[in-house]
Design a protein around this nucleic acid. Structure first.
Length: 392
DNA sequence: CTCTTAATAT
DNA sequence: TATATTAAGA
């Protein structure tokens, strides 16, 4: 892959001045695997723990990049943001050429991940690597340094998202505002607007998840009540327990913490959760999210509202139906800056741990082995009951 | 001015 | 579809 050069130069200074990263690309093993029990394993054979798609046909991979043909030009100059290019899709190669080399040399050290990641790679470049050319995106608006047309669309790769989440968690959900997130992420070529936009979606998604969790939690409580009630003399059918008002479904939180994880997944290679900040993140988090989803507990009490069928689709990226482009899983498109964030992490050691908040674990279809069922929501929901219910 | 949100455009 | 852009309001 070629490095591309970000051209940033933020006149405004407001958003990022860039630094550039070096890049090495290496396979980052298991970096982001999504545990989507709904569809995981369905079609995988044993090596399911291997990224299924490292080798996809570039054509397919980038099919989705299309993007408003020709519109996305690099914004290299876009004044207000000083934005760099980012992961930009459909960015201008020319810009890269013009800018040429790197600006500053900084080494990025990253905690767990080799953050070597983020480069601002344009798909075009990636493609060039692969010898492919994007259909439309590149064509128009090239000649000049395409100053500013439209901002290139940012490709929120799992890695990028992960950093985003990490930043958000470091800051705390309530203090996470675009500008701060941007700082922490240390990824140049992102603008405040990019972040804001992503943040908007992120919050929205989180909201949904929390709501679901709350709902599920309330049900699990009922379940417990029910279980307790059913411990009567054998043969005696349990009576319907009274459900106290405070056990009634509430919209409140917090959801009960996930029970200790049985080291069940020994046989498995730990799967990382898409978007989770730390590699150490318990892989199960995601599983729990799903488990928390309401399952019909008792015959006599139907859930007040049918479990929302949407959740999985909410945050899902429908891109890369066949997997994520290799290039994306590793060298991610934007340059990582020296990570002021690293410091942040140290400052708030607890943050990392606290990062358990399962709120944000978008599934990524990338690991979907089978095409989504025709009936959109059905299958994943069904999976819910397939797991041991354990404590809940 | 920055942030948030919703609506709408691409 | 995912993301950007815009506008309105805090």
């Amino acid at each position: 892959m070629l490095a591309v050069e970000p051209l940033r130069g933020a006149p405004n200074g407001d958003d990022r001045d860039g630094a550039r990263g070096s890049f090495d690309d290496f396979a980052d093993e298991g970096l982001l695997e999504d545990i989507n029990f709904g569809d995981l394993f369905m079609g995988f054979d044993d090596d399911g723990d291997v990224l299924p798609d490292l080798e996809l046909d570039p054509a397919e991979i980038f099919a989705d990049f299309s993007v408003g043909a020709g519109e996305d030009v690099v914004s290299g100059a876009s004044t207000d943001e000083g934005g760099g290019i980012g992961t930009v899709v459909g960015a201008a190669q020319d810009a890269a050429a013009a800018e040429g080399e790197r600006r500053e040399e900084e080494e990025e050290e990253e905690e767990e991940e080799k953050e070597a990641s983020s480069h601002c790679e344009t798909p075009a470049q990636v493609m060039s690597d692969k010898g492919r050319k994007p259909p439309a995106a590149t064509a128009p608006a090239k000649g000049s340094s395409s100053q500013g047309k439209r901002k290139a669309k940012v490709d929120w790769t799992p890695e990028l998202h992960r950093r985003f989440v990490q930043a958000v968690e470091q800051l705390g959900i309530d203090k996470a505002v675009p500008s701060r997130i941007l700082e922490l992420m240390g990824i140049d070529c992102l603008t405040r607007h990019n972040i804001a936009s992503h943040l908007q979606k992120y919050r929205s998604h989180r909201k949904h998840l929390l709501a679901r969790e709350a709902e599920a939690a309330s049900w699990s409580q009922r379940r417990q009540v029910y279980a307790a009630a059913s411990t009567g003399p054998a043969g005696v059918p349990p009576k319907r327990p009274e459900i106290s008002p405070w056990l009634a479904p509430t919209i409140g939180f917090p959801p009960p913490p996930p029970p200790p994880v049985p080291q069940a997944h020994q046989g498995f290679r730990p799967l990382h959760v898409w978007g989770h900040p730390t590699g150490e993140a318990p892989p199960v988090v995601h599983m729990w999210l799903r488990q928390l989803a309401p399952r019909v507990p008792v015959p006599w009490a139907a859930p007040p509202t049918p479990p929302a069928a949407d959740p999985s689709s909410y945050w899902q990226q429908q891109h890369y139906p066949r997997g994520i482009p290799h290039a994306m899983t590793q060298g991610t498109p934007c340059f990582a800056q020296p990570l002021p964030a690293a410091a942040g992490m140290q400052r708030f050691p607890a943050a990392a741990a606290a990062a358990q908040v399962p709120g944000i674990v978008p599934h990524h279809p990338m690991y979907r082995a089978v095409p989504p069922p025709t009936s959109k929501h059905a299958s994943s929901q069904l999976q819910l009951d397939a797991h041991p219910v354990s404590a809940y």
